[in-house]
Nucleic acid binder design. Structure first.
Length: 638
RNA sequence: GCCGACGUAGCUCAACAGGCAGAGCAGCUGACUUGUAAUCAGCAGGUUACCGGUUCAAAUCCGGUCGUCGGCUCCA
């Protein structure tokens, strides 16, 4: 009989009979794989453990510890859920059911109403299926067979999927007990391998992500090979929710949201401290980098929006008002205003690049279901800038902005993801001009060796863009910074500069934000720091806690001295025990507490307590001030 | 906008299956003069989101509106 050579990951080469099953050689590789192996990678291709080896090749065993193994596991759990749902709801039609980060979902078209109350029943049925321990059996079918199978089953969405598969695609189905599903695989060996799982939520989701398609019901869940891992994950979710900016924002008195203004946040004085610090920093850094600050009106005439293209492309997101019988709009973007300023003077090529920066308040009518605390609102301040430049300056200007984003985000200790979005279906301008702009962005990123993903067709209607995304407490990402090239608006507004040849030329325009929206950025910051802001941003930087009434004068003296150094200081003069005051200050996440009693007053020193760290001991006030001035100036993040 | 859930005091949450809406924290008043995460006592606080319906009786059941939460779509 023929033999096959198998190259293992540890460098060993083994020989087996032709057609040996991967699962049968697991014990020889490592005994722990008998229990832990979920799938395998043969010659780089993910396969089932039940696969026969019919050629020489490299073999790698996949477990839950591998990212791919985790996906196989979660996806298998999704199949178990689908089987349970089909048992409980005859006539349900299957959509798709992939693994996602930390879980899985499956989309269903239910013949009856389905609500989150029904999840428990599905979970119970899943438990049965797991106990029944059906093997996952793979079968490969021809296109005709597959089409017949799924149309006989009434699975119209699966039929649609098969029809859209490329000509040469291998079509496979997986069976477990009475359940059969179109699936590329691989899967874990049997349903019994799913040990700990939980269904988390049910949500609507359009079939294939399009509003024009029917809405299916999506059930989200997660699964782990150990109960303790599931519990740990759920615990972590709970912990993360405590960092939610909507919760912390109220607790710390930073902002509030009211029914009277959905999507229009109210900032309290402590929230304004953070905003003002961010803006002060922003102004300083932009001045250094050659930006000129401008301010343009919030309400502008309809004719401007017609000229800019917003009237045609953005109207459903805009608010309108009437002044003296003519229509005006609340600006959804700052660009047309900046262009009007550009046009107030004859510009020379020697003036370019011109960098107009504007903290501009924009209003956008967002659909009611998308509002989300400070992250998604209907009025927000963009830390905008519009750069007018020569075509030859494009690359350097893009790099300049990318450096600025990197400089800013590093100060806050953010890790960020970069995405490039290309021409959308509803766009202004020719394909050529889009390609030119898109390539400019690509070149700049590649020049900086930046990792990025491409979002086809996700660009703004006037140009392609680079987006910078940051994560919130639950790992959801939000677009913050963005760089958008624009060849359209200069055209529409017929802006120009005089070149060395004495002729008029068209400048290129670039829109960009660093924070993105100040509101969103504050939301991200709250979650990133869990409310414990670094000293330079903390609304109250120091609280002085006198032990008893007789120490109040001394506390007020210290307050004055710190205020002279421009620190934000409060004295907790309440008639309470020191432990109580400390607790309050800790909950308010105030960076420094100064405790003053008889000893401190007598020697003119302070007892320093640091947020979350505790007692730092006694120091002189001058020493303390030096230390915190340094910390503030360096924007130290703990 | 769509799917699902939710909305009770400033906050966190109770109130079996329709039968007088309750607690802790916060607030106010008083006592205590306090040493590194909650001192004690008292007082006050509500048109149960809003509108309508069913009922002898609605926080509770039904319908609608608004808002919020988790998603989808859309986006900074």
């Amino acid at each position: 009989m023929d033999k096959v050579k198998v190259f293992l990951k540890n460098g060993e080469v083994k020989e087996y009979d032709y057609g040996v099953l991967i699962k049968d050689i697991l014990p020889e590789i490592n005994k722990r794989y008998i229990k832990e192996a979920l799938a395998a990678k043969f010659n780089g291709e993910l396969v089932d453990l039940s696969k026969k080896i019919t050629e020489d090749g490299s073999l790698e065993i996949i477990t839950f510890n591998d990212e791919e193994g985790k996906k196989v596991y979660l996806h298998s759990a999704a199949h178990v859920m689908a089987q349970a749902v089909k048992r409980l709801f005859p006539g349900v039609k299957l959509g798709i059911g992939p693994a996602i980060e930390n879980g899985f979902y499956y989309d269903f078209d239910f013949p009856v109403d389905f609500s989150s109350d029904d999840l428990a029943a599905v979970e119970d049925e899943m438990a049965k299926i797991i106990k029944e321990d059906y093997p996952f059996i793979r079968r490969e079918l021809s296109r005709q067979e597959a089409l017949k199978l799924f149309s006989d089953l009434g699975e119209k969405y699966k039929v649609e999927l098969i029809e859209d598969l490329p000509e040469d695609a291998v079509i496979s189905v997986y069976e477990q007990g009475e359940f059969i599903d179109l699936c590329a695989g691989p899967h874990v060996p049997s349903t019994g391998r799913i040990k700990a799982f939980k269904l988390l939520s049910v949500a609507g989701a359009y079939w294939r992500g399009s509003e024009n398609n029917p809405m299916l019901k999506r059930i989200y869940g997660t699964a782990f090979p150990k109960k303790s891992m599931l519990e740990e994950y759920l615990q972590k979710l709970e912990e993360a929710k405590k960092r939610d900016h909507r919760k912390l924002g109220v607790q710390l008195g930073l902002f509030s949201l009211h029914e009277e203004g959905p999507g229009f946040p109210f900032f309290h004085s402590k929230g304004m401290v953070i905003i003002n610090e961010l803006e002060n920093f922003w102004r300083k850094e932009h001045k250094i980098r050659g930006y000129q600050e401008i301010k343009t009106p919030i309400i502008l005439n309809r004719s401007l929006w017609e000229q800019s293209g917003h009237w045609d492309h953005y109207k459903e997101n805009m608010y309108f008002t009437e002044i003296d019988n003519s229509t005006y709009a609340l600006k959804p973007m700052n660009c047309p205003g900046a262009i009007l300023i550009y046009k107030t003077e004859q510009r020379s090529y020697r003036d370019l690049p011109i960098r107009f920066a504007e903290l501009g308040l924009v209003h956008r009518h967002e659909r009611s279901g998308v509002l989300h605390g400070l992250m998604r609102v209907r009025a927000f301040t963009q830390d905008d800038a519009h750069i007018f430049m020569l075509p030859s300056q494009i690359k350097d200007e893009i790099i300049g902005v990318m450096d600025l984003v990197d400089y800013f985000y590093n100060i806050f200790g953010f890790e960020y993801m970069v995405e490039l979005s290309t021409k959308p279906p509803k766009a202004m301008g020719s394909d050529e001009i889009w390609e030119q702009a898109t390539n400019a962005l690509k070149e700049a990123m590649e020049g900086k060796n930046m990792d990025y993903v491409i979002n086809e067709g996700e660009g703004a209607f006037y140009g392609p863009k680079i987006d910078f995304h940051l994560k919130d407490c639950l790992g959801r990402t939000w677009q913050c910074g963005t760089i958008q090239l624009d060849f359209m608006l200069p055209e529409k507004f017929d802006i120009n500069y005089i070149g060395p040849d004495g002729e008029k030329h068209r400048p290129v325009m670039l829109h960009r934000v660093i924070f993105g929206s100040i509101e969103r950025f504050v939301g991200i910051l709250i979650e990133h720091y869990g409310g414990a802001f670094p000293l330079w941003l903390a609304p109250v930087q120091i609280v002085i806690l006198p032990i008893a009434d007789r120490h109040l004068d001394y506390a007020l003296d210290i307050k004055k001295m710190l205020e002279r150094e421009d620190f934000r200081v409060e004295v907790d003069a309440r008639n309470e025990k020191i432990g109580y005051k400390i607790r309050e200050a800790e909950i308010q996440k105030i960076p420094y507490m100064l405790i003053v009693g008889d000893a401190e007053k007598e020697k003119e020193i302070v007892s320093v307590r640091k947020r979350r760290e505790g007692d730092l001991g006694l120091v002189s006030l001058t020493e303390f001030i030096e230390k915190i001035k340094f910390e503030r100036a360096n924007k130290t993040v703990q």
